[in-house]
Design a protein around this nucleic acid. Structure first.
Length: 227
DNA sequence: ACCCAGGGTCATA
DNA sequence: TATGACCATGGG
């Protein structure tokens, strides 16, 4: 067992949350939307700016397709043309339709709300186009399950803070397990934390893992989070 | 004409 | 296990 750097503890995570909240304010991601729309958005936003995914969602909503039954029954070509602004539209259209059919097969929101987080996560991972990060986003934002989203922004920030090794192995699952295993907060906390980390990540330079010599911002504000 | 964005899958070695 | 190719549009 190699001693890999992993300085994760509840105090640090809460401090990070408070610091980012103070700096950026409440983010309120995915408020007032249906659980299924959250799932659709989670697929559409993959490797895509949220603004473009949101356009696709609006198009789908305009056609009344943000309902599992309607979406599953919609011809693939129609879905493709509607979500084009989100990119990867052929893949995403197929995945959306498959997810919609799956949603119905699971018996809807009421049925899935009864399932354990682990069970639900396994089923989500069984779907085409839903990996660890997308599954956790759906679990957190659609099903209110308390999970840390160890996405690229979180890993980059943690690396800059010296909490993890830059470019470590088992990137997503490794950090996710480390945080979920030691930080016991509610879904509300993780919801805001993830949104804050992403917002913060976009507000600073994207040079990774450190900012020395960054052409955009020589001194990345992320370093200030120590204090 | 580049580069990248709130990933995931599949083929290689 | 770990890279690389691929998916595709929109904005800088």
């Amino acid at each position: 067992m190699t001693s890999t750097l992993m300085r994760i503890d509840p105090g640090r995570i809460r401090d990070l949350h408070d610091t980012l909240l103070d700096r950026h304010g409440p983010q309120r991601w995915w408020p007032g939307h249906s659980a299924f729309e959250v799932l659709a958005g989670a697929i559409l936003v993959q490797r895509t700016r949220w603004e473009n995914a949101a356009r696709a969602l609006e198009e789908l909503d305009r056609e009344g397709l943000l309902l599992p039954g309607r979406l599953a029954a919609c011809p693939p070509g129609n879905v493709e043309s509607l979500i084009r602004p989100a990119g990867f539209y052929r893949q995403k259209a197929a995945r959306l339709r498959a997810a919609a059919a799956w949603w119905q097969g699971e018996g809807g929101l009421g049925r899935m709300a009864q399932m354990s987080t682990g069970d639900l996560r396994e089923r989500l991972l069984g779907l085409d186009g839903i990996g660890p990060e997308t599954a956790d986003c759906i679990l957190l934002y659609a099903f209110d399950r308390p999970l840390f989203i160890a996405d690229a922004y979180a890993r980059r920030l943690f690396a800059r803070l010296g909490w993890i090794e830059p470019g470590g192995r088992g990137t997503y699952e490794r950090l996710a397990r480390a945080v979920n295993g030691t930080v016991h907060e509610g879904a509300r906390f993780f919801n805001e934390l993830h949104a804050l980390i992403v917002t913060h990540g976009k507000s600073v330079c994207s040079d990774t893992p450190r900012c020395d010599g960054c052409p955009l911002r020589p001194r990345c504000p992320a370093g200030e989070l120590h204090s």
